[in-house]
Design a protein around this nucleic acid. Structure first.
Lengths: 193, 193
DNA sequence: GTTGACGTAGACAGATTGTCTCGATAACTT
DNA sequence: AAGTTATCGAGACAATCTGTCTACGTCAAC
């Protein structure tokens, strides 16, 4: 008797995948990355080992899937927060602020190693590229409005923002997150002559 | 017959530790974090498994030691680059530039996951705290000279700098690293009224 | 009701883990 | 040079993990 079932096969498969990824994140937060085994993940997820192998070939694949899922959720949250009718620089600030809060929450929820890995090199990561594109679009609009510097390419500015705001994971409280967003945006303003 | 020997026991122990940490870094870059075993590390390091267990209790401990060693080397490089006789803001920029170059190099040398982990949450990491203190001292001096904003605490600014400059790991060439340092320092200037 | 997919305990061979032994080797001390 | 101390590491050991497979009960889709 399988331990995880929902009403449709597709929903069931998604639930099993989520259970495996959540188990992975919990075990990594608890034991660190190099001590996690497929046996532990299956047990923590409440599924059989053979079932886990049907969904993921190995633990590294689960980590990759977890990473992409987190980034996709973050992107959804950013989209929800940005008011399309607002001026570009307001949208930019709202987006960056939301991202900083996500970083702040992630570091506490998942522990340092996973939070760091959420931010890894993205030439292997399509979800992270979408996140960067999202921020780059906000920046491009704010550049057109003259609110953001135009002497540096927007893709570089987007990378700068995303990296700078991961600092939100290590600051102790919300006020510091707000200040961090301010400092990050200060980097985006046009340089004085 | 041991495979690794140097002239003194202390030097030998250091060599064995380095060999194990280097093997760890190489295997992680090659296979990802969750697929690395103590057997592989020992083989790659050229030492026996029992010997490896004499130096490190598990793979996670090797990763932690590697991380601390890298940060210590980075701090040494930063100290070498900063001219104590120069003005504070010049020292600050030199330090930040050097750190950006280190990030740029690290990401290429070690691969994304290890580079990301070099930057993880530091409430478990003494070496990283020393790095932050170093940058914070440079900032404090520049604040006194009026070259850096004083409305945000220097420890927060230091955290911002270190995180922002990890973006250097993902930009394609040196010119972008230079611009990134400029954008990061723009965030440090006093806000316009 | 039928079909196909899913889950899973257990089996299997191979690999890894963590600890231990003990002989060979090397550094240190005298 | 000789004696002492420390290190190395292959192999052994029991336990665990890996990756694949089987067979059968269960469940969703049709």
């Amino acid at each position: 008797m399988p331990k995880l079932w929902t009403e449709t096969i597709d929903a069931h498969r998604a639930a099993v995948r989520d259970a495996a990824m959540n188990a992975m994140a919990a075990l990594v937060a608890q034991h660190g990355l190099v001590a996690v085994t497929m046996s532990q993940i299956a047990e923590r997820a409440g599924i059989g080992r053979a079932t886990l192998y049907k969904y993921f070939p190995d633990a590294q694949a689960i980590l990759t899937a977890w990473h992409e899922r987190q980034i996709t959720e973050h992107l959804d949250q950013l989209n929800a927060v940005v008011d399309p009718a607002a001026p570009a620089v307001v949208r930019l600030e709202a987006g960056l602020r939301a991202y900083a809060h996500i970083q702040h929450h992630s570091a506490r929820h998942h522990g340092g190693e996973l939070a760091a890995l959420l931010h890894r090199s993205e030439h292997v990561d399509r979800a992270r590229q979408r996140l960067r594109d999202f921020v780059e679009q906000l920046l491009a609009q704010a550049v057109r409005d003259g609110d953001v510097r135009d002497d540096v390419a927007t893709d570089e500015l987007a990378t700068y923002c995303l990296h700078a705001l991961t600092a939100a994971g290590t600051v102790p409280h919300q006020e510091a997150v707000h200040r961090l967003v301010g400092v990050t945006m200060a980097g985006l303003t046009a340089p004085r002559p």
